[in-house]
Design a protein around this nucleic acid. Structure first.
Lengths: 327, 327
DNA sequence: CTGTTAGCGCCTTCAT
DNA sequence: ATGAAGGCGCTAACAG
């Protein structure tokens, strides 16, 4: 494999000049430039990224922490992030935690070792303080997870408000026995539950922990929960879910158990996934904020990697309720 | 940032010994080991991955080429690959081509520059020969795409057989006017179309290009196609699709247009995604082979990266038809 | 078991 | 506009 030294020999200039040509520096004579380019052609030279990364102590790789990219929300997020970061020269490396705290810490250890230039945390099982302790002065941005922004930049949906909107809407339509399903247990999901509770409070109604189901993530989970719930003697008149997929599973179970939607029961999804338009009835849902969030995260990240030292930035986005036929 | 030199000073051994401790080499006295570990503690030393990668000329990063990770098939594939490779110390870097030949070539250029140790090609717009020309002696494995295995290792579903099975099944049940929808135009999709044609041939029936729709990828695409087809005067009595999502869209359109499934028309999906159990009727579908394929790809990749020089390996997996209520 | 030594390929000051 | 020189952090012969 030829190196810039070989190029410098063949082209008759110094390796400094070769490097300058390679990096499009100004103040290189056209003549030198051409000699170098000719030598590059002749020798079939390709730059060795390891040398560059070593010298610059940067990889141009950004890690992203997600529970699992198979989850439609996270695959959308990863797709959008990869596009956005790719367009400015960063590559996205996937780290699927599968909810393991140990694995998550391992990723932060890799960050310390400089295996990546920064990490985007879309899901975490640690507290913001714990994360900060793990990463030291490395760059990390919270994107999606509902941290407080005490130590780190945070970009997130107002989850509390989102579920508050959905819950209030059902309560305002006279529904009185609602159930809520959350995903994996994280700060984000707790905020959602809090929104559920607050809406009840606002209406002067009470609700209890027994109306909250945890660990309901997939279509199958939604279906299984529906099968259980709709054959019990405590059939709800409204369900608020963590994703359109879960809601789809619930609709399926409701149909099989003869529970009319929206007559007897309302169902609200989350994320405005296309699947919500394919169900019968079509799904009322909450929008997420992936496009805006990714854009802001990308910008913030580039600033931080350039060395910007300002206080942590927090930005919150509002969901909107898209009303279709399941409510 | 302390380096192994700092450690060697503090611990009173040479940097070689420090390196040996760091890499768990045998032939290091317990005494030295302890001194080094103590110094590492004291100084808060963390290894610098750039130095290691530079020295070893390896990144432990594997690229994966997909059209888009938002596509459920590819998000499943990426998820499984990431898990499998992660367990043996490789990280997965996403490259979404969005069907761009130029971008794909750019990724191969990065491979040449050693930005990654190898690339897994799950989708390509180039011929196998073109790919080989781009990557030279670098490591690339075809995983999913239907190449011939002339130059590269290939792990793939027998797409022809899969669609042959599906088509034959419908023809054997008396269906006579079938339509086929394919995804993006790639060798893989052409094989599928070929399976469709062969099944017709086997039954002594003819079929024409007009029965083949291209670029039908998402639920919305399936729905739009259904809307178009089912309001025309050429309503098919069977549809074979490239994914369960497309099939779901078709079912939706059929329902809206009053075309009974499976009475008037059969629909067959692909991939055995959970969504196929949530539709009405439940979807007949073809299995993919992601788990087996990923396992074999992982093994092959490690061999290649260890320097194995054997002739290209080709392995083909068979799909099986899962019959539910849409046929 | 340990230390010495020699780079891996590149970028970047500092001269000129 | 160009060249010389130094060094980023680490591993792996090699010699003892």
């Amino acid at each position: 494999m030829p190196t810039i030294i070989d190029i410098s020999h063949v082209s008759g200039v110094s390796k400094s000049t070769v490097s300058r040509v390679l990096n499009d520096h100004p103040h290189v004579s056209i003549e030198s430039r051409q000699k170098v380019q000719k030598a590059i052609q002749e020798l079939g030279y390709v730059r060795n990224t390891h040398g560059i990364q070593f010298r610059l102590q940067a990889t141009n790789h950004i890690g992203v922490l997600v529970p699992d990219v198979e989850h439609p929300y996270f695959s959308k997020l990863v797709s959008t992030l990869s596009q956005s970061l790719g367009s400015i020269g960063y590559q996205l490396v996937i780290y699927q935690t599968q909810l393991s705290r140990e694995y998550e810490k391992e990723v932060y250890a890799r960050l310390l070792r400089r295996e990546m230039d920064a990490v985007i945390i879309a899901h975490s099982q640690l507290s913001e303080r714990e994360i900060k302790e793990c990463i030291g002065s490395c760059t990390a941005i919270i994107c999606n997870e509902a941290m407080d922004g005490e130590f780190l930049d945070v970009f997130r949906l107002d989850e509390e408000d989102a579920v508050f909107q959905a819950t209030s809407y059902l309560l305002s339509r006279g529904r009185r026995y609602l159930f809520f399903c959350m995903d994996h247990l994280t700060p984000l999901q707790e905020k959602r539950w809090s929104g559920f509770q607050q809406a009840h409070q606002q209406f002067g109604l009470s609700c209890s922990e027994s109306q909250c189901y945890r660990g309901v993530v997939t279509m199958e989970d939604g279906y299984a929960l529906g099968e259980q719930l709709f054959t019990s003697d405590q059939v709800p008149d409204g369900m608020i879910t963590g994703s359109d997929f879960v809601a789809t599973g619930l609709l399926r179970a409701a149909k099989q158990r003869g529970i009319g939607v929206p007559d007897k029961m309302s169902v609200i999804g989350f994320d405005n996934h296309p699947v919500g338009c394919m169900t019968t009835p079509e799904l009322t849902t909450l929008t997420n904020c992936i496009p805006d969030m990714v854009q802001d995260v990308t910008q913030c990240l580039t600033q931080r990697l350039k060395g910007m030292q300002s206080a942590p930035i927090t930005k919150t986005y509002k969901a909107s309720l898209i009303i279709r036929n399941s409510t």
